[in-house]
Structure formats: C-alpha cells, structure tokens
Amino acid sequence: MKVMIAEDERLARDELMYLLSQEDDVEILACADNGTELLELVRLQRPHVVFLDIHMPGLNGVETAERLQRQGSAPYIVFATAYEQFALDAFRLEAVDYVLKPYEEERLRKTLQRIRARLSETPAWPASAAGALPPPLPAEAAQLHAKPPAAGVKPKLLIEDGSRMLVIDPAAIAYAVKEEKRTLIHMADGQVHTARQTLQELELRFGPYAFFRSHRSHLVNVDCIEEIEPWFNGAYNLILKDARHSRIPLSRGAAKELMHRLQGM
C-alpha cells in the first residue's frame, strides 16, 4: 500500500509517519506541505491513498481533494484534522475515512483495514503506467470508476441539511432541477431538498433507477410520469404523479428517446 501524506505541521506529520511505518504492508512516499505540492507528487508517484490535512497554506485539504477528483486521479482520500466540523465535506467527497488528531493507533488500524478492503476490490495503478496519469475522467465518473457499488446494491443519496446528512431513496424522488448554482430535489411527497451534486452526477449515481434527462435542466423519475402533454414547436410537458402533479419540460430532442424507452424499444 503506497501512502502519501499532505501535512504542513512537522510534529503531526512525523507522528503519522511513525504510526504508518509500523505496518508491514505500508510504503510511505514523499510528503507534501501543501495542496499544490501534493497534486504534483500524486501525478509523479501515484499513491494508493493520501492522508490529507484540512488546514494547509494555499489550497486546503477540501479544495485539494476536489481537484484530485476533477483530474480523474485515483488515490483514496483520508482526511486528517483536529476539527470535527469538516465531516460533512468528507462525506460529500466520498473520502475513505476521516480521522482526528491526535491520532489513535487502533483508530488508524481500522482506517488501514478499510483501505485494504477497497484495494482488494479495485485494481491499483497499472505498473506499466508508472509516472503517468490515465486519461482524465469527469469528477463524478472518476468516483464511480474508483469505487463501484456492490453488485445488486442500489445506491442512496446523501443530502446535507444544515448539520445533518439526510439519506434519500432515489425511488422516492419525482425529479431534480438545476436552478442557478443549486440542484433542487423534488420528492414525490412534495418535499424539496437542495443538493450539492450536479444533474450529471445524479444521473450517474441513479444508474440502477429509472431516471431520464428530459431537458438540460431536468432529470425525471420515469416511474413517476403520469401523462405526456403536447406543448408547442414539437416539445412536450411531462405531468407527474407526485403530490403536486408537477409539469416539467420534455425537449424535442429527448421526446423520441423517451417514447422508445417507455415502449421498451
């Protein structure tokens, strides 16, 4: 297991290096003092996992993790910090774990066990490609590529609601809509939640469910469609069987594909 540490505090870095060095299967690569340096080291040395401090000069840990995702980089992320309030960011970025300083040996062992389990399921960096990244993937595709859901398991959706994380069953969603910089999740029972995910990210996550991109700004649950209503210029409205009997647009380009899908063609 090739491990890289991004930590600007020398004592904290030395402590983590010592604890990791006690594990027979851990190889510690070069350490980084900031996020910018880490991005370059990941590109060159291709670690399996990065222990990433939240508070660093320049790019902080959250910003660095977001850039790793956008670049399609492969390492798993473990956030390391002295502050508990960043746990929501760890969930949002799908970090393998979130450990608090000062480090506890038993807690760190559990983190390493979790990483070993992930590595046993997902191939590591190809040995023949050392020193070069694979072709970049969109951030959401990179996440799914690195950590595919277990066979037969339908994913849930995590929504931040203040200090809480709501677990939502996608089957209970009527549609999602992009409004300015927000994504609104409209539930079949009439509730509305705000999500950080883009429509493209939701579309990828909802793969096992029957969702359809009816319009560039709308993603609809096909099982919630009650009626297709002609509108104008070849476009339509979809009338949903949710609590509000919502009407959402169906573009001309998407109409034919949806008709075929509904008829099983």
Rank of each mutant, 00 (worst) to 15 (best):
211 F>M: 02
228 I>M: 12
114 R>T: 15
86 F>Q: 02
214 S>D: 00
240 L>S: 09
7 E>N: 08
49 V>C: 12
174 A>F: 06
61 G>W: 03
204 L>W: 09
29 L>T: 07
89 D>I: 01
100 L>G: 11
104 E>L: 09
109 R>Q: 15
178 K>W: 05
168 I>K: 03
204 L>G: 06
185 I>H: 07
44 L>V: 07
256 K>F: 07
220 V>N: 01
118 R>S: 08
167 V>P: 03
123 P>C: 11
126 P>H: 11
246 S>R: 10
209 Y>D: 06
44 L>D: 13
184 L>W: 10
34 N>W: 00
156 K>C: 05
17 M>T: 12
124 A>I: 01
236 Y>P: 00
100 L>Y: 14
141 A>S: 08
241 K>E: 05
207 G>H: 12
137 L>G: 01
226 E>V: 00
175 Y>I: 04
128 S>V: 13
229 E>M: 05
28 I>L: 13
22 Q>F: 09
252 R>W: 07
176 A>E: 08
5 I>H: 02
118 R>Q: 14
62 V>A: 04
255 A>W: 03
223 D>F: 00
226 E>A: 14
161 D>Q: 11
209 Y>Q: 04
108 L>M: 07
138 P>V: 08
152 G>I: 11
150 A>P: 00
116 R>S: 14
124 A>H: 08
260 H>D: 12
261 R>Q: 13
215 H>M: 11
206 F>D: 08
217 S>T: 13
247 R>Q: 13
96 V>Y: 01
227 E>C: 04
248 I>N: 04
165 M>G: 01
63 E>V: 00
246 S>F: 07
213 R>M: 04
75 P>N: 12
